[in-house]
Amino acid sequence: MSVRVLFLCTLLSPTIFGADPAVSLQGPSGGWRYHGLNEGDNEARVAYPTPPIDRGAQRGRSLIEGTLQNIGPLRPPHRLVVNGNPLPLYTDEQGRFARPYAFGAGSNSVELVAGEGQSLKRIQFYEANNLRTPARMRIVLGWDDPKAELDLHVVTPDGQHAFWSHPVLTNGGGLDVDSVDGPGPEMFTMTAPLQGTYLIYVNYWGNLGSGGYNFEAGSNQNEIITAQINLIFNENTVNEKRETFLVPLRAIGELLFVKSFTY
């Protein structure tokens, strides 16, 4: 049975954000709810604000849920920072959000950060379930346009190519979740990376509006979409190393090479 120790620090100031702010972040007291995104009826449970697709590459994920309501003049995009990985955060009309993440054993943290940089709420907890293998390599893609759909592409040393239509690799790597409603995240994870050269690409696939997906230029929100790619090795260990890349995308169909690295 998994044992968790919770340290909770709430940093919200009502004098700054209004009389009745509602900022919540579900903590691991009683346990994170580990499950696939689908509950067996082929209907995704998560809404952020619409469901991501569970392609099965990473099981045993935790669902991070919360609300951002009545927080005054703070402007989005806000950020959900998971183990130091900043992910652009948008909510539905009721201020709710939900995101999956694959936590490993050891110390983990989740933080809500306002667009201006103000920390709203932070949870740090220790995951003592040693069966939850930490990610030795994680690549996280997020972007700042909720009306655009970007895709993460990773080529591994043995020539396998992970992307939305081929998320599960035979070498143990794969996409944790394929976010289909903007602005991410999309995550590639390996717990036992192969030695050799890896290639990272980002593709501006199309746009998303009230009528569904489209490929109409200008139907996204920002003229220039800023994609942020975080490359993390040995997450949550004393040997953790990370790099962050900012990539601008302008035209639908654009496929940009981000990084080549050797593990």
Rank of each mutant, 00 (worst) to 15 (best):
L8P: 00
G66I: 05
S165N: 10
Y90M: 03
G72L: 04
L6G: 00
E243H: 10
Q94E: 15
M187T: 07
G196D: 05
V110T: 14
R79C: 13
D158K: 08
T244K: 04
A162H: 07
G18Y: 02
D151Y: 12
V140T: 13
H78W: 02
T237L: 08
P185N: 04
V180Q: 10
N171V: 04
H166V: 14
Q221P: 03
Q26K: 07
R75E: 13
G31R: 02
N83C: 03
A128D: 14
R138A: 14
S210G: 10
V3T: 09
L194N: 00
K121E: 11
I64M: 04
R55Y: 11
A135N: 10
L74C: 00
Q124M: 13
A192W: 00
M137A: 13
G196S: 09
G159Q: 09
L12D: 02
E216H: 10
Y126W: 12
A47M: 12
L112P: 01
I224T: 14
A192N: 07
R250Q: 15
V46R: 14
N85L: 11
G27P: 00
A135P: 04
E254G: 01
F245M: 08
L231R: 01
D54R: 13
L141I: 03
A192T: 12
G104P: 08
L63M: 12
P134E: 07
F188I: 02
P167I: 11
G60C: 09
P76S: 03
P51T: 10
F261Y: 14
L131C: 07
